[in-house]
Nucleic acid binder design. Structure first.
Length: 104
DNA sequence: CCGTTGACTCTTT
DNA sequence: AAAAGAGCCAACG
């Protein structure tokens, strides 16, 4: 039993997203066993900036990139560099959506 | 305990 | 299709 903040769990999940894949805020929250998609976003925003923190691989459910500290546009370019093709500011979730069980 | 805050999501107009 | 409203829930003061 780990008594860590919800945010910490989010970071753990996000860090597990493989390159070239993306996860929606909702999926991350679901993986953590809750529907607090908002808290996931908040957690990313207040992200400590730890290394290997691909917060840019977390997107909205409708495929939009969402927000980013350096700007949404920057995030899109990063995703493209990772191999995720972003069309008109959107990601093909059908192709890049990634699922992960938060089994310890 | 209560109110505010959010890088969200879904439904209705 | 685009906009507005309602709903979701942890962290903070």
């Amino acid at each position: 039993m780990k008594n860590i903040f919800f945010s910490e769990k989010c970071y753990d999940i996000v860090k597990r997203i493989p390159k070239g894949k993306v996860m929606t805020y909702k999926s991350v929250a679901k993986t953590l066993g809750t529907n607090a998609y908002r808290v996931v976003g908040n957690a990313m925003n207040k992200s400590p900036g730890m290394p290997e923190m691909p917060c840019h691989r977390v997107v909205k459910s409708n495929g939009e990139v969402g927000g980013f500290v350096h700007g949404t546009r920057k995030k899109i370019e990063m995703l493209n560099m990772e191999g995720v093709k972003v069309k008109n500011g959107k990601v093909d979730l059908e192709e890049y959506r990634y699922s992960l069980k938060s089994k310890s």
